[in-house]
Design a binder for these strands. Structure first.
Lengths: 161, 161
DNA sequence: GTTCGTGCAAAAACTTTGCATTATC
DNA sequence: GATAATGCAAAGTTTTTGCACGAAC
């Protein structure tokens, strides 16, 4: 089976991601194991924009050879380091990941009723954040902006809190 | 000992907070126990702007009668409900609380080197956030904006990552 | 062959919960 | 006196770790 045949998300290039990952691993004298490869494939296959470690563990539950929970957690960390994944905390108790590599930066709108996540990007806001940071003598490296509320759908259904 | 004599933070009025808390509890048919009162007092006494549940548990370790861990956790939730406290998650694994009642809204700059937290407020940013949300059909209720980077002190010390 | 990664189960860190007892309203 | 809160210890969640074995370089 060719690598490309398992791609569900046409916007994302598994080969490119693998190349980038391999480069990073090599620089760090780390190894590209079959598990690490499978995890990256699975993340693309799932085609969920946001997923948890446990989502991924579930995906491997019926697969053989198994990829263990420990490996999933360890690999997620390894994927965050070179910026292939981004790690978020949306107010739930667990961390949420999303593919970052090849995607433009964005922030999030989170519906407190249905949990849906919308992404947004606003140039003026980005500039303003840097300005605020600098005005406080800060040297900003990154930010996390989350706006909570009700999405159009939930509001339409009459949810009001 | 008069209530006011234990106040360490002159900006915060224990009596007013207790009144507000009592009102809220009454509306909900909840009870103002000595533990709840002590926890509120301790939060003011500590005069840390940001604290965790465990910080508070520590404060009661040598005190008698003890206030148990379970009660601290339960009371923090009760204090968040009416907006007396605000709950944050700054990227660590634990929740961080701060007094909200009587303080203006603000967001946070977090130093990734020393962990210090600076507060900021920017009118234009607040407006922009609402605008962005509305443009996406969202009905915003609140937001959490965190800018990570190096504070002036750490930058001055030569820390660069 | 050396070094790093894996699986497993156990532990860790933080938070929540069940239950009998006690305090508040 | 009815209802809600407390303390304790036990259990829950999510994530991390120690260690013997196996895979990658």
């Amino acid at each position: 089976m060719a690598r490309s045949s398992i791609r569900k998300n046409p916007n994302m290039d598994l080969d490119k991601l693998l190349d980038k990952f391999e480069d990073y691993l090599q620089r760090k004298s780390l190894k590209l194991t079959s598990q690490r490869r499978k995890i990256l494939e699975k993340i693309l296959e799932m085609d969920k924009t946001h997923f948890t470690a446990d989502d991924l563990v579930d995906e491997f539950r019926d697969e053989r050879p198994r990829v263990s929970k420990a490996t999933v957690y360890r690999t997620l960390s390894v994927l965050v380091e070179p910026g292939i994944l981004e790690e978020h905390q949306f107010g739930d108790s667990h961390k949420v990941y999303e593919l970052s590599e090849g995607r433009p930066h964005h922030d999030h709108l989170i519906c407190t009723s249905c949990g849906s996540i919308l992404e947004f990007y606003n140039e003026a806001m980005e500039a303003l954040q840097d300005k605020v940071a600098v005005n406080h003598g800060f040297h900003p490296t990154h930010h996390s902006q989350k706006i909570y509320g009700l999405c159009a759908t939930c509001w339409g259904k009459g949810v009001r809190s």
